[in-house]
C-alpha cells in the first residue's frame, strides 16, 4: 500500500510520519506517532473519546483523514501539563472526582480546553454545550461541569 508523508505540529513539536491512504488521525497518532492519550470508543464519531484540537478547534480523530492535518497544529492531553505542573483543568478534574474509569477524560479535557481558550468565562449552559459531544458513562457529568467552571475561574485569576 502506498504511503503518504505528512508533517504537522503535535503539542508544539514538529512531527512527520508516513501514513496509509485513508488512514484516520486516531490510528495514526496512536499507532504510528505513539501518542496513546486519545482513545478508540466508537470509530464512528459519536462518543468524543478521540477528541483532539486541530488549530485550536475540537475535532474527532476517528473521522479526520490523517492527510488533512498537513501543516496544522494538533494538541492532545500530552501537551496540557507544563512539565510536572498540571494544567488547572487537570488539577480540578482530580479534585472534583471528575473521572472514574478515565477513558473519556482525555477527550473531555480537550473539549473543555477548547472552550476555555475561546470563552474564559463560560456559563454552566455553555460548559454543558461544549462537552455535549463527549460521552461519559461513569460520572454523571456533574463533577465534570463543576471542574470546568472552577478551572475557568482559576485561569481567569491567573490572567489578571
Amino acid at each position: 500500500m502506498s504511503k503518504t508523508p505528512i508533517q504537522f505540529t503535535l503539542n508544539g513539536k514538529p512531527t512527520s510520519v508516513f501514513v496509509n491512504g485513508g488512514a484516520n488521525l486516531l490510528e495514526v497518532l496512536r499507532r504510528d506517532v505513539g501518542d496513546m492519550t486519545l482513545k478508540y470508543g466508537c470509530g464512528q464519531g459519536t462518543c468524543g473519546t478521540c477528541t483532539v484540537l486541530i488549530d485550536g478547534e475540537p475535532h474527532l480523530g476517528c473521522l479526520t483523514l490523517a492527510e488533512t492535518v498537513e501543516g496544522r497544529q494538533i494538541e492532545t492531553v500530552n501537551g496540557m501539563a507544563d512539565g510536572p505542573e498540571l494544567h488547572p483543568l487537570q488539577k480540578l478534574f482530580m479534585e472534583n472526582f471528575a473521572a472514574q474509569c478515565g477513558f473519556c477524560t482525555p477527550g473531555m479535557l480537550m473539549a473543555a480546553s477548547s472552550l476555555l481558550n475561546r470563552n474564559p468565562n463560560p456559563s454552566r449552559e455553555e460548559v454543558v454545550e461544549a462537552i455535549s459531544g463527549n460521552i461519559c458513562r461513569c460520572t454523571g457529568y456533574e463533577p465534570i461541569i463543576d471542574a470546568i467552571l472552577q478551572a475557568a475561574s482559576s485561569l481567569r485569576g491567573r490572567a489578571f
Binding site: 492519550t37 500530552n78 483543568l89 478534574f93 482530580m94 473521572a99 478515565g102 477524560t105
Partner: peptide, 12 residues
Amino acid sequence: IRQDILGHVTGR
C-alpha cells in the same frame, strides 16, 4: 482523591 486519577487526567 482517587488513587488512579493522575493517570486519567494525563492520559497515561
